[in-house]
Computed example of a mutant assay.
Amino acid sequence: MTVSTHARFEVTDVTPRIGCRIEADKATLLGGAKAKEIREILEQRGVIVFPEISLTDEEQIAFTHTLGTFAHEEGEGLAGKDSVYPITMDERINPIASYLKGAFFWHIDGTMSEKPILASIMSGRRLAPTGGETEFCNTYAAWDDLPEDEKKTLEGLQVVHAMWRSQLYWHPEPSYELLQQWMARGRNTLPLVWKHGSGRKSLVLGATALQVVGMDIAESEALLVRLRTWATQPQFVYRHTWKLGDMVIWDNTGTMHRALPYDHDSGRLMHRTKLEGEEAFA
């Protein structure tokens, strides 16, 4: 475990392969002087926890701007505006809450895009009495630890991703009309192994992964499930148990994540902001 301290900015690894905690005051974060260091830590560790920092929505938006380009949400009244997005199962707060049920399964955000978001920043506003933890796995480390002969067979493989695939995890028998709505989001063919501009490589997996191109459906499913099982082994995973006011950032390009089950009537509420993507899948 490594620890470094400088002017109320203390960094501590929480597991050997993924995640760290940063103890800092609001002024340090909002001033932006540590933004470059935070981004470097995020790229190396995948997940950063700011325990009980309790930023307001306005402060979270300002902090997001220090790290990169603010990614605006889609939807009525949100396009082009700096705003937090409510992550909740309460449809009175988020009318499309049902769509978020796909988040209970391992995934990468933005697999329908050429250039996925760089990172998400999420703050705990209301918590469920039990459950509702968030898990993250390091897809860089999962790739690094694969046997060399297997790496050779995986590089060059392409995988078709579809949003509707992830929705079938929680709603396996949709109406034809609902399925058509999901399918309207299209599909995207992505590399199984992402060769990043940094020179590092990571696995591109998750609930939107539909089929390996050119592979029999059963063989494809076996490979994707085996690799997901590999990438989500305990040594690659950090589970965050939320406290009110916690803020967590994760590198969407080098991790997968999922929420753990909780009572959907509990009122659990997270506020999310995002950073626009800076690198296309390659």
Rank of each mutant, 00 (worst) to 15 (best):
S54A: 15
L154M: 04
I22H: 02
V84R: 14
L190V: 07
M183G: 10
L192P: 09
E91G: 08
G156K: 03
V248L: 15
G124E: 08
V237P: 06
I22W: 00
T66S: 05
Q211L: 12
G32V: 04
Q180E: 13
K152T: 14
H6A: 07
S120P: 01
V14C: 03
R17A: 01
T139M: 12
V213Y: 00
G77H: 08
R165K: 15
R92P: 00
Q211D: 05
L227C: 11
S113A: 13
L154V: 06
D82S: 15
R272A: 05
N188T: 06
K81P: 12
G254Q: 02
T28V: 12
I18H: 12
T69K: 13
G31A: 00
V11N: 06
V159A: 06
Q235L: 09
R45C: 04
A282L: 07
G186L: 07
E278I: 08
T134S: 14
W170N: 10
G68W: 03
V213I: 10
T15H: 06
E278Q: 08
V84I: 15
W164R: 12
F236W: 13
L168A: 05
D109V: 04
E114Y: 03
P147M: 01
I61K: 10
I87L: 14
L223A: 08
V212M: 12
T232A: 11
T273N: 07
G206T: 03
S166W: 02
N252W: 01
I108F: 02
D144M: 10
A79F: 09
E23A: 13
P129S: 06
T111H: 06
G80S: 12
V11I: 15
L260A: 10
E59T: 04
I48G: 03
D57P: 11
G206L: 02
F136T: 08
Q44V: 02
Y99L: 14
K151M: 12
E91R: 15
T66P: 07
H240V: 01
I108W: 02
A184I: 02
S198D: 14
Y169C: 12
